[in-house]
């Protein structure tokens, strides 16, 4: 794992973390490994602990010394309990339905918008961009009161449809933003060539631009779908009854209880985190760029 092998020079750190001299280099590389290991532990350990705790017998954490690396006993109890005692599958189902529906609406809508912003220059284009960007700046907490009242009056409170509408809107600015980046990478002259060859605008879009935009569309849908796991406040206020809950609300309910069932809570957390992590891990190579920025939103 040694890094600074003699004779090999590394400049890439910007010069801050290394300097000349062989002995000094050895000390540096030792320090480097220590720092790297510490950082890795800081990144991974909390997550590791969650997975480990989900396999401890129920109540284990309260009765025993905190296990740091492995507990003395393992058990599947928490996993059986969360599926028996709580409507976890229902919440997972709700989450999936809401996110999939929202994604299916957001993608075509944002595709049209980003196509328009990319291919045409027209009066009001810049104001529209600012309008979308400002929409993204607004904190959900600033809109939650009127949304609650409007949805109540429209009979959308505590309905899956209501949550979907809210999710769609909060996902739209990000989707337009990310897709726009992809669209900019598709040269306009491909489409112009198709027009010269006798296609109309729609055909040129469908036969030339759309296939080229597919990877971007796939990445954006995926990102939007995963982003849906994070819109907590909207679901919190708009979906009141437990039947309509999404998984994040089910998770939060663990903390409200008189005593927290750590093992069950951790098992449920693993369930909630799994889809996002699996998808990210499988597709991380294809998803850099826009996703990197989008994935940070709260």
């Amino acid at each position: 794992m040694s890094v600074a092998r003699p004779g090999v020079r590394y400049f890439g750190d910007g010069g801050l973390l290394q300097d000349g001299g062989r002995r000094r280099r050895f000390i540096n590389s030792l320090g480097f490994v220590v720092v790297l290991v510490t950082t890795t532990i800081a990144i991974v350990y909390p997550f590791y602990w969650m997975v480990m705790a989900s396999f401890m017998p129920l109540g284990y954490s309260l009765g025993n010394e905190t296990p740091l690396i492995l507990p003395k006993q393992f058990s599947l109890e928490p996993w059986l309990a969360i599926f028996h005692e709580r409507p976890l599958l229902l919440w997972l189902g709700n989450t999936t339905i809401i996110n999939v529906t929202a994604t299916f609406v957001v993608i075509p809508v944002s595709l049209l918008a980003s196509y328009s912003l990319n291919r045409y220059r027209f009066r009001g284009r810049m104001p529209f961009i600012v309008f979308v960007l400002l929409g993204q700046l607004l904190p959900a907490s600033a809109l939650i009161v009127p949304l609650f009242l409007m949805f109540r009056d429209a009979g959308l409170l505590n309905t899956t449809g209501g949550v979907v509408i809210a999710y769609i809107t909060f996902m739209l600015p990000t989707a337009i933003w990310v897709l726009w980046g992809y669209m900019q990478g598709i040269p306009l002259y491909f489409e112009e060539a198709a027009l010269v060859d006798g296609c109309n605008r729609f055909q040129a879009f469908r036969l030339v631009t759309l296939p080229l935009a597919m990877p971007g569309l796939a990445a954006t849908s995926l990102f939007i779908f995963l982003d849906g796991w994070n819109h907590y406040l909207l679901a919190f206020v708009l979906a009141g009854s437990t039947d309509q809950w999404v998984i994040s609300l089910g998770l939060f309910a663990f903390i409200g209880a008189y005593h927290t069932e750590i093992e069950q809570m951790m098992a449920t957390s693993v369930v909630a985190a799994a889809p996002a992590l699996v998808v990210f891990a499988l597709l991380q190579r294809h998803l850099r760029g826009g996703l990197a920025l989008g994935g940070m939103k709260g």
């Binding site: 602990w49 994040s248 985190a273």
Partner: peptide, 23 residues
């Protein structure tokens, strides 16, 4: 490291809060 970095980043916010609640 890049793969490991994905872990906190791809974890849904509420799960992050629960993990740290326990931590």
């Amino acid at each position: 490291t890049r793969t490991l970095l994905i872990i906190p980043w791809a974890t849904p916010w509420l799960v992050v809060t629960l993990i740290w609640y326990v931590m």
